[in-house]
Amino acid sequence: MKARAVSLTLIGVLLLASALCLTGVNLQDERRAGRDIAQILSTWSESPDPSGAIAVSAFQHSDTAMPTVEIGGASYIGRLSLPDAVLPILADWNDLATAPGRFSGSVSDKNLVIAGHNYRAHFGSLTQLSFGDAVSFTGVDGHRHRYQVTGIDVIAGTDRDGILAGDWHLTMFTCTFSGTHRLAVRCRCIP
């Protein structure tokens, strides 16, 4: 009986230690993500003329290319302003650990889709958005596009068509807590 009690105690400690370790790893990654975003934005704002570095690039199977600016070896299409954050947006979604990235579409075609990690410093605040909130995207040409949240969906992680469906001018999506679904915030342009 005593051996069982010791075993159960050890297992309990192991489980709690696992939870602690996982929390530590996640928080460390959160901090790293926050530092990366701050550094990118700092570099961006220090650049006297970001448009001077603009180079148009085409993406694989992309419907529309967007002008980009190079920062730290990565290409960005602009900055996204949420109610409580400003985020640089990568030209593609190959490195979402660094910053949110363009998943599909473009501003000019009014079908831009942006994917982002659910780090607090990235798209963690998407859950706080509600209908009517203002969002804006400033391209590397300096042109600002203003949007309003007009829809919020939860879509299965395997439903790529679901993310792309609908006549939305801007879609931002990130993982839900479980990771099996994606929270998609839909926006339309403000004239």
Binding site: T9, G12, L16, S18, N26, H61, D63, D159, C175, G179
Partner: peptide, 30 residues
Amino acid sequence: AGDGTGGVLPQTGRLWWPVPLLTVGGIFVL
């Protein structure tokens, strides 16, 4: 139609969901 990236969306989340499970499980076993 779309960008030809296939049917699966990128993984955009940290592994948070096991934390409450492990915590509750650990306390229960203790």
